[in-house]
Design a protein around this nucleic acid. Structure first.
Ligand SMILES: [Zn+2]
Ligand SMILES: [Zn+2]
Ligand SMILES: [Zn+2]
Ligand SMILES: [Zn+2]
Lengths: 129, 129
DNA sequence: GGAGATTTTGACAATCATTTTCATTCTGCA
DNA sequence: TGCAGAATGAAAATGATTGTCAAAATCTCC
């Protein structure tokens, strides 16, 4: 029934970092999967709605998805060079967001927090020669 | 020389919350300004590059800009209903981002942090009648 | 097993913010 | 005044995402 959705989910699981719908589609076609772009978009959205994958927006405005190991609320440390992603936890940030929101009379507080950097592999000294 | 850019900046300053390029353009035309959409986009980008305005992406992927009072690093508490924005500070978050990044061997760490909620005006009880 | 109802799929067209193009209009300066 | 280079903006191009709709798959009840 959700054959396609599972296939999309699997493809995502095989990826290291965040991937766009277009990426996933290309990847699947490359491996011979018979699926349409529309269906990939729908599957990704459904997975995101169901909380099975995480979404974030790139600087270029593209939505990218990732099948995370943790199924509880968490954030991401993403290498801006290679995309390698680490799932991180930040109780202090959670508290801070709630506090700062309440202090100003806001309710139903949510937050987006992403950390970017250059991972150790990518920051290895460039060859001088 | 930067007449247009200043006009765009002024329009932004008159706004309460974040505004899209399209919004700013419409607003300016409404008030009789003679300016093209392309120029608004260019001005907004230049202002953002120069750090004179802050940018963020909406859920719908639109870039929105705001002329903030603070010229130092800060974050935003945004009403998801009316867009009213409060500039907030979060030393704990700054430290956390740096720490979590270093712990995983990442360098040149940056972060995006935005808090959303419903402001007191917008959460006023809906009329029962 | 089968007919009809219901859901899922995907090729294609449509949308829409943003970017490019490129010809025209400024600007500073000799 | 006259010109090189920057700024401007109308119109076309781009490109991710969404809408459409008919065909295909799946389910439901007999
Ligand atoms: Zn995650
Ligand atoms: Zn959090
Ligand atoms: Zn509000
Ligand atoms: Zn910060």
């Amino acid at each position: 029934m959700t054959t396609r959705r599972d296939a999309v989910h699997d493809t995502l699981r095989r990826s290291e970092g965040f991937r766009s719908a277009q990426d996933v589609y290309a990847e699947m076609r490359l491996h011979g999967a018979k699926i349409g772009l529309t269906t990939v978009y729908r599957a990704l959205q459904a997975l995101a709605d169901g909380g099975q994958v995480d979404v974030l927006r790139t600087d270029e405005g593209e939505s990218v998805y990732r099948a995370c190991a943790s199924d509880t609320h968490h954030h991401h440390l993403v290498c801006r060079r290679c995309g390698r992603t680490v799932e991180v936890d930040g109780p202090a940030v959670e508290r801070w967001a709630e506090t700062v929101g309440s202090e100003h009379g806001f309710t139903e507080i949510t937050h987006t927090v992403e950390v970017f950097g250059t991972c150790s592999s990518c920051s290895a000294p460039a060859r001088t020669g």
